Deep mutational scan, measured.
Amino acid sequence: DVEPGKFYKGVVTRIEKYGAFINLNEQVRGLLRPRDMISLRAENLNVGDEIIVQAIDVRPEKREIDFKYIP
């Protein structure tokens, strides 16, 4: 289970104008929005990159997770 405030290692699987999709594993995926990329620009991300993200909002009923990148 993903808990708000905890840090996780994930892999960038898709990049859109509104953010990057980060997979923690095959069943868990969330969104890293540009406003939550402190000191990281979306254009510096590539599909396949491994990054550490913090879960900031977890909505299990919608199967949605928002992440924040903190260097």
Rank of each mutant, 00 (worst) to 15 (best):
K9W: 13
V53E: 00
E16W: 14
V11S: 02
A20M: 10
R59V: 03
V58L: 05
P71F: 09
Q27C: 13
D57E: 14
D49T: 05
I15P: 00
A20Y: 13
I51Q: 00
Y69L: 07
D36K: 05
N25G: 10
N46V: 12
R14Q: 10
M37Q: 05
Q54W: 10
K9C: 15
P4T: 12
R14A: 11
E64Y: 14
P71K: 12
I52Y: 10
N25R: 06
T13D: 03
V58K: 04
V2C: 07
Y18K: 06
L32D: 02
A42C: 13
I38H: 13
V11F: 08
L32T: 02
N46S: 14
L40D: 04
I15C: 05
I51N: 00
I22K: 00
M37P: 03
N46P: 00
F67L: 09
I22D: 00
Q54V: 10
N44T: 13
K6A: 07
L24G: 00
L31N: 03
F21Y: 14
R59C: 08
R33Y: 05
I70V: 14
E43R: 12
T13M: 07
A55C: 15
E61K: 09
G19R: 08
G10S: 01
G10A: 11
R35V: 09
P71A: 14
K62M: 11
Y8C: 03
F7I: 08
K17L: 10
R59W: 06
G30S: 15
Q27D: 12
I70D: 11
E64R: 10
E43A: 13
S39R: 13
E50G: 05
R14M: 06
V47Q: 02
N44K: 11
A20F: 12
N46D: 06
V2N: 04
K17F: 11
G5R: 04
E26Y: 12
N25E: 05
G48L: 02
L40G: 06
E26I: 13
V2T: 03
R59D: 07
P4E: 09
I56Y: 11
K6T: 06
R29D: 05
G19N: 03
I65V: 09
E3Y: 11
L40N: 06
I56C: 09
D49Q: 10
N23Y: 12
R41L: 13
V2H: 03
D57K: 15
E3I: 15
I56G: 04
R63N: 14
N46E: 11
Q27N: 14
N25S: 14
I22N: 00
N23C: 14
P34Q: 15
P60T: 09
K17Q: 10
I56P: 01
N25D: 08
K68S: 09
E16T: 15
I15R: 02
I52S: 03
G30E: 03
I65G: 03
P34W: 15
E16Q: 06
D36L: 07
F21I: 13
Y69M: 07
R29P: 03
D1M: 14
R63K: 14
V12D: 00
P4K: 15
G19F: 10
R35T: 09
E64P: 03
N23R: 13
R14W: 07
V12C: 04
E43T: 11
S39A: 13
D66R: 14
F67P: 02
Q54Y: 12
Y69E: 11
I52V: 13
V53L: 07
Q54L: 15
R59Q: 03
M37I: 07
L24D: 01
E61I: 08
R41P: 08
E43K: 12
T13S: 10
I22H: 00
G5C: 13
D1N: 14
D57M: 13
K17V: 11
P71R: 13
Q54R: 05
E16I: 08
Y69Q: 07
A42H: 13
Y69P: 03
G48A: 01
I15F: 03
V28A: 04
S39W: 14
D1S: 13
G5P: 03
D57Y: 11
K68Q: 09
E64D: 04
Q54H: 04
Q54I: 11
K9I: 12
L32E: 02
T13Y: 07
N44S: 14
E26T: 13
K68R: 15
L45K: 05
K17W: 15
R33V: 08
N44Y: 12
Y69N: 02
I38S: 12
I70M: 09
G48E: 01
Y18A: 06
F7S: 06
I15A: 01
I52W: 15
E3S: 11
P4C: 13
I51Y: 02
E3Q: 14
D49W: 06
Y18H: 06
V28I: 13
D49A: 06
Y69C: 07
S39P: 15
D57N: 15
D1Q: 13
F21Q: 04
D66W: 14
D66K: 12
I22V: 11
N23A: 14
E16V: 13
R14H: 07
I56E: 03
L40K: 06
N23M: 14
D49C: 07
R14E: 04
P71H: 09
I51F: 03
K6S: 06
K6Q: 09
